[in-house]
Computed example of a mutant assay.
Amino acid sequence: MKFALGDNLFADAIENVWRANERAIAVGLSGAQGSGKSTTAVRIATALHERGLRVTICAIDDFYLSRTERLELAEKFHPLLATRGVPGTHDIALLESTLARVLSATDSDAVEIPQFDKAADDRLPYPEWRISRGASDVVLIEGWCVGARPQDLKSLVEPVNVLERDEDRDGAWRLYVNEQLANDYSRIFSTLDLQLMLRAPSFDCVRAWRAEQEAGLSRSSPNAQPPMDDATLNRFIAHYERISRWMLEDEPADLIADLDTMRAPHAWRVRNV
């Protein structure tokens, strides 16, 4: 993937916001599964480092609830919440406290940042968390649903796929997820100083991207799960489909990079959200 131009445009926007605020800022980077968010975040951070800015990257995926916590959530509210991904399956309190600590950190501070092992489908134990040392000028939060906004309740009525039709017949799961977006997630997303988006050309290419991502997962952990077969992967992606499609329509970002099917940006747009 070639993102040099994009990294510079994203880096320009971040630097401008940082200079305007004269304080540490929080920046969101969203994009569908497999769109290259993690790679882009690292390249943006590198471009900003070259300009003298200190950057800490946080992935919202690292704040998923543990498998045990999700099973408890599934038993209490809805079985579909056992699967990580949708709003409601993250530890928002941990995310908020971690971001607050990183944004306020001084040169002598160290902040523990959780790590999630997707192959094992569980959060790593505390001793294996990443340590962010020193102050940051920019905290870059990347994740597929970063910045997502709740849908109108009428939009929740019709299922978007077989999963919703057969396993969420009364709409309770999608209503729960939407309520999380309207409350805890909206609160934390509203604190972002800038929102960037890698926009997929359509949802149709997301499955292929996510399949590539699945094949590339490290399975060195003793608790690693076997790779998903096609049926399992399709069902997994179905959990994300509604919000992914909604974000492609809603475009909740200040600066958008339109991607082609090879994940290369071919157009740039500024939006007022």
Rank of each mutant, 00 (worst) to 15 (best):
F3R: 12
L5D: 15
L9Q: 12
F10G: 04
W18H: 07
W18S: 02
A20C: 13
N21T: 02
A26I: 12
H49N: 10
R51K: 07
G52P: 01
V55Y: 05
T56F: 12
D61C: 10
E69S: 12
E72Y: 06
E72V: 06
E72S: 07
F77C: 10
P79K: 04
L81A: 11
A82H: 13
T83N: 08
P87Y: 04
L94K: 00
E96Y: 04
D109N: 14
A110P: 00
I113S: 02
Q115M: 10
A120D: 14
D121R: 13
L124T: 13
E128N: 10
I131L: 07
S132R: 10
R133P: 06
W144D: 00
G147E: 09
K154P: 05
E158N: 05
N161K: 03
V162W: 13
L163H: 00
R165T: 00
R174H: 09
V177I: 11
V177C: 08
E179A: 03
L181Q: 10
A182V: 15
N183L: 15
D184M: 01
L194M: 07
Q195A: 14
Q195V: 15
A200Q: 03
D204V: 07
R210K: 09
E212I: 07
A215N: 15
S221G: 10
N223G: 06
N223Y: 09
Q225A: 08
N234V: 06
I243Y: 11
R245W: 01
I256L: 01
D258G: 05
R269T: 11
